[in-house]
Computed example of a mutant assay.
Amino acid sequence: MAIPNTWGAPYGGYGGPPPAPPVIPAKDLRPRRLWYVVAALLGAVLVGTGVTLVVLAIKDTVNSVYTAHTFAGGEQRTFGFTRGKTRAIYVSQSRWGHVDCRIPRELADSLTKPAGTFRVTHGARSWDRVLEFTPRTSGDYPVICASEVPGAEFALGDKPEVGGMVGGILAAVGCFLTAAVAVPAICIVTAVRRGRHRRRLLAAATPPMWGPPPSGAAPWPPAGPVA
């Protein structure tokens, strides 16, 4: 049998289950969940920008060869030229072979062989840059090329901007890396701060575990003068 306690509950008795913790609505937490949406949008924008940069770099490189106006070895083809705009001659052949091209002397002094190699794959064909020249006048002029490899095809094109292509790809990689770092960082920081805010709100709303202070006279020591 429980011993009566003048403070309220009997000694050894059971005062009932502890109160349930208060419910904190998610909308009351800070920072708001809007930051998750911001992180998702930021990631989408960065990834989309990176993909666009890669596509543009590849497209500009592929379009540097005028594959719509190819000509066979030994065939003369007339093209329009602009003074000062460097042009390149590309060849598509089954194996490496010596290439010889000729242009009118009034168009350019000579054809030069590029210092490095540059190859563009368009469809089932690969085009290698073999010669370059800078027109000193504008107008339509014929170009004729030949190769020791049978079945070789030639095409005129622009001088490839390797630096621009590399810069575009590096910028795209930067966008991808920024998205990979920024999006998780925003989500983690938001989740941690919301968790801390939830704990602070719970601590402020939860009553003390020991309950309200006792009322009435204390059972010990007994009332009266002390001997």
Rank of each mutant, 00 (worst) to 15 (best):
D128Y: 08
A205N: 04
V99T: 12
L46W: 12
L170D: 02
R87P: 00
W7P: 00
R125M: 10
P212Q: 11
P184T: 06
D128H: 05
A124D: 09
P104E: 10
R32G: 15
A180T: 03
T134L: 02
T6P: 00
T134W: 01
I144V: 14
F81D: 08
C101F: 12
T206F: 07
G211C: 05
M165S: 03
G12H: 06
H122M: 01
F79N: 06
L46P: 14
T49S: 15
A40K: 13
V54N: 12
H122I: 04
L111H: 02
P160A: 05
G123P: 00
A146K: 12
E75C: 02
K85H: 09
A146Y: 06
T52H: 05
P4L: 09
Y141L: 03
G16W: 13
P222Y: 08
P214C: 10
G195N: 04
G139C: 03
V55W: 14
R33H: 14
A185R: 04
A217M: 11
L41M: 15
T117R: 08
R87G: 02
L56A: 12
V65D: 12
G74W: 14
G8S: 07
D60M: 07
G8F: 09
A2L: 04
A191V: 00
T134P: 00
T206A: 05
P221H: 14
A72N: 12
A152L: 04
S138K: 03
D140M: 02
P4K: 13
A57E: 11
R105M: 08
L42Q: 12
G211Y: 07
I103M: 07
A20D: 13
E161C: 02
A40S: 15
Q93D: 13
W35E: 12
V226I: 14
G16Q: 08
H98Q: 14
A217I: 11
F176Q: 02
R95N: 14
D60Y: 11
L53A: 14
A146W: 06
A72K: 08
R196N: 03
G15T: 10
P207T: 06
R198K: 09
I169V: 09
T67Q: 09
V162D: 06
F81V: 05
R105A: 15
T49K: 10
H197D: 14
A155P: 13
A218Y: 13
C187E: 04
P225A: 15
G211K: 04
A108R: 06
I58C: 09
G167V: 03
R125F: 13
P212W: 11
L177E: 02
A218R: 11
G211I: 09
H197T: 00
I58V: 13
P207M: 11
F118K: 01
A217S: 14
P212L: 12
T178H: 00
I58P: 00
K85L: 10
P213H: 08
R102M: 11
F133M: 01
V173E: 04
G12W: 07
G151D: 01
G73T: 10
A180L: 11
R136I: 07
V65G: 12
R200C: 01
A191Y: 06
W127I: 02
T206W: 04
G80T: 10
A204W: 07
L131R: 01
N5C: 07
P21F: 15
S110V: 07
L34W: 15
S110F: 09
G211N: 09
V23S: 13
I186W: 01
G195T: 00
G50A: 09
W127Q: 03
A203D: 07
W210H: 13
R77S: 11
D128V: 05
C187S: 05
V120E: 08
W210D: 13
G12N: 04
